[in-house]
Amino acid sequence: MKAYLTIFWTEMKLIFRNFIVVFFSIIFPAGMVLLFGYMYGNDPISEWGGYGMVDISFGAYVGMSICVTGLMSLPLTLAQYRQKKVLKQFKATPASSGSLLASQVVMNFIFTVISVILLYLVARIVFGYTMAGSFCLFAVAFLLTCVCIFSIGMLIASVAPNERTATVICYLVYFPMLFLSGATMPYEMFPAGMQRFVNILPLTHGIKMMKGVSLGGQLSAYGTEIAVLAGVALVCAALSAVFFKWE
């Protein structure tokens, strides 16, 4: 147990030294809230069902945060650890070979939680945001989205032969998801044809669900989303278990 905690704690310190991850995961979503919050305010707007800009976007910003850790930090770090033989060096210790992987997953998850809490505090303190829906249901929706996005990240880490390829794949997956899934622009603003296309992206479903639940929806209303997220998570997790290489 001590070993796991030390690995975890060390990796946690390392992620906080990674400026890109800290910036895009913690500062960027909070910055988006501030930017759009100041531009549009959080006053109720009737076309949006009486919700304000921050109310409507909160779920999307959370999705943004998940993507940075799940699609950038996690796969890039693992690809780098493989290329730099850190994984191999770990295999030559009495630690279980999965302990470093597990701690990376848990650590990135906790980092995501921290960034969401900060995001919430900014929204709350600056714009008086309150979550209309239940915190618990939102947590479930958040968790499911994390599982799905992280398993995509694990798959990228498994198939990318080196750090450079991993970076390319991560950008190819990350940016379309970020721009098209409703994290930056509300999904509802897309034309119908575009909506059909962005429905392929798992993050779209995650954001739709988190947004709905944060606005007071019930999870049961999001059966399709849950099925898509769980399905993608299962497939990616299974594939990465098959393809994962230690070196």
Partner: peptide, 17 residues
């Protein structure tokens, strides 16, 4: 690996450690 120490070819360290 409790009784054997190993140093592989090339350095194997995390960034910023």
């Amino acid at each position: 690996f409790k009784r054997v120490g190993v140093q592989f070819q090339q350095s194997a360290y995390q960034d910023r450690i």
